[in-house]
Design a protein around this nucleic acid. Structure first.
Lengths: 109, 109
DNA sequence: CATCCTTATGTAATTAACTTAGGCATGGAT
DNA sequence: ATCCATGCCTAAGTTAATTACATAAGGATG
């Protein structure tokens, strides 16, 4: 399965922003959460995840901070910034708009 | 206008396959159709369209044939092949699966 | 204590699908 | 005579993925 893709291109930022909007999480936990909530449909690989986090941090939509997890290990926890919250709203609207449009096309008769 | 992308990456094949599944169309008309049905939300630029058509033709999911349009001009009409119809079903299922999964994540509380 | 699995973060090389920005040609309207 | 809409096409550049690594700490097992 080299191509049936486990993500819709361009939605990873949205998924990450949404996930940490509920509560700050470290990268590994974000990926696990997305997979779990999507019933293992969405697979967030490390090669996609970490570059995405750095991307978002550079945009100042999220902010990272090292602190220990519940199990006592150091991990980088990310939280949404105010700009990130605005960005999340934007991306939600954009997704709704475009995915609805796709829906119109694929259901046309 | 809307620079946050006028297409969801990876959905163009699906949109094209669906469009010509209803009736064979030439490239220009396919693009117009998708835009019109999506209420101008989806913008299919030529730089995306023609490579996509060639891609699909190479996969033998669509077959092209030159013939005149209603207005008397030559254009390349594409129709779905049998393999293309199977591919369309696959891509529809894939889209439903993934977009639903995105829905689960962005609506989680 | 050696080894292995899980957690956890990261990078590098490659690939695919886009965007942007053109070119070319024909037919109809002004 | 010129311009616009139709219609096909390509090339360069961008970006976000995939694939495949590297690294390290903690916990469990033999």
């Amino acid at each position: 399965m080299s191509r049936p893709s486990d993500l819709i291109q361009g939605t990873l930022d949205l998924l990450v922003l949404k996930t940490i909007s509920l509560e700050p999480q470290h990268g590994w936990a974000i990926a696990k959460r997305i997979q779990q909530v999507s019933h293992e449909v969405l697979q967030v690989t490390q090669g996609a995840l970490y570059p995405a986090l750095h991307r978002l941090e550079q945009q100042a939509w999220i902010a990272g901070e090292w602190r220990p997890t519940e199990t006592g290990r150091e991990a980088k926890f990310y939280r949404l910034t105010k700009a990130g919250r605005r960005q999340l709203e934007k991306e939600l609207a954009h997704w709704d708009r475009l995915s609805s449009a796709v829906g119109l096309v694929i259901r046309m008769v």
